[in-house]
Design a protein around this nucleic acid. Structure first.
Lengths: 199, 199
DNA sequence: TACATTTGCTTAACGGTGTTAGATTATTTT
DNA sequence: AAAATAATCTAACACCGTTAAGCAAATGTA
């Protein structure tokens, strides 16, 4: 009897259902409104069931974080593939990062701890490193000096990240920011950093 | 009988005691550990007493936020006064901002929503605008073109803020960041923005 | 088929949270 | 001393994350 597989599939469905329900609640009512009981309600179970799929709430959030990094990684890869010239590639990639932050605002908050209490010990998720690697490689391509020094890549990467993450954070917490200024800062900073990458 | 004043003074003392206790708890155990009952314990009262001084927990946090902005404003003013040359002034001010974030990590988290759930509707605190004005004025002094365009001041201010706040946020959430790289990015960015302020 | 075992799920509970209402005690006013 | 007011506490409500116990249906075994 192949009911083992069917049950396995059902289990994976409810696991996915839990994550989806959580995300939907957060999107509709914000992170403060997310509770185990509310998730259980949404999937038409009672709260303890969730503990059969995740060790605890933090575990659930870590799984969501992982999904977020995977999504982000795909978006950035896609942006890279949309251009051929290295400088244009890098710009497109950071613009994709920017867009992800606003299209998936709640995910970004979870992943980068903007305006939320987030789970402990989510450092060094392998899914997060993929994005870092994409950016590092793109920066490396723009360095002319040989051998390309690792510390310059790192420095430039963190510089990019700081500006863009800072601008995103400010926009996500403070409201009433100007979209035109955002674009000016974003594009201006990206081009400025690219321009000075070989100094 | 002047006991009215004495009672008034006592009330202000316990009010201050509540805020101090809250801050101490947060510094020792983090934002997650802060509860009304724990504050009450610290000041040797019971929880409902706090509601005679603050409308609710959010109100208490808003008051702490206000204190934070006042402290930050003072630090930045002091940094400004420590230099005479405008460019040096501006650099010193942002360095003071940077130092405040790490010396008063918990305050900074509260004020700018880094890695915490913060109170609603804390936008547009007058105490926060003082800092903004200090920076804006300092930037204005560096613009040579007349009349100095308001939108350039704004653009430069947000550019500064984005890099520095971004770098701080990354450091406060992700651990294991390199202090040397921080300083390079920080000083590099400040000087780069100052240098291009008249382009 | 009858019994035993496992599985899926729920109810009930524990200790915690912010917050409010009511009772109680202490202080001041008359 | 009695009445009125202020200061403070106890108890409760509804919620939270989490765990243990129990029930009922499905499954395995004789």
């Amino acid at each position: 009897m192949g009911s083992k597989e069917r049950i396995q599939r059902q289990k994976e469905d409810t696991r996915k259902g839990i994550l989806d329900a959580a995300l939907q609640i957060v999107r509709q009512e914000g992170w403060n409104a997310l509770s185990m009981r509310k998730i259980a309600d949404a999937i038409e179970y009672t709260a303890p069931i969730i503990y059969e799929y995740f060790p605890n709430k933090d575990g659930l959030l870590i799984e969501l974080t992982r999904q977020g990094y995977t999504m982000l990684g795909k978006k950035i890869k896609k942006a890279q593939d949309s251009e051929t010239e290295p400088a244009k590639q890098l710009e497109a990639m950071w613009m994709a990062y920017w867009e992800f932050a606003f299209n998936s605002k709640e995910m970004y908050q979870l992943m980068y701890g903007v305006d939320m209490v987030c789970c402990e010990l989510k450092k060094s998720l392998p899914e997060a490193e993929y994005t870092t690697k994409l950016f590092s490689d793109a920066i490396e391509k723009l360095i002319t000096k040989e051998p390309r020094p690792e510390d310059i890549i790192c420095l430039k990467y963190y510089t990019f990240w700081s500006v863009i993450h800072g601008l995103i954070s400010i926009n996500l917490t403070q409201k009433g920011t100007n979209e035109e200024i955002n674009q000016q800062i974003l594009r201006g900073a990206i081009q400025a950093i690219i321009r000075t990458i070989n100094d």
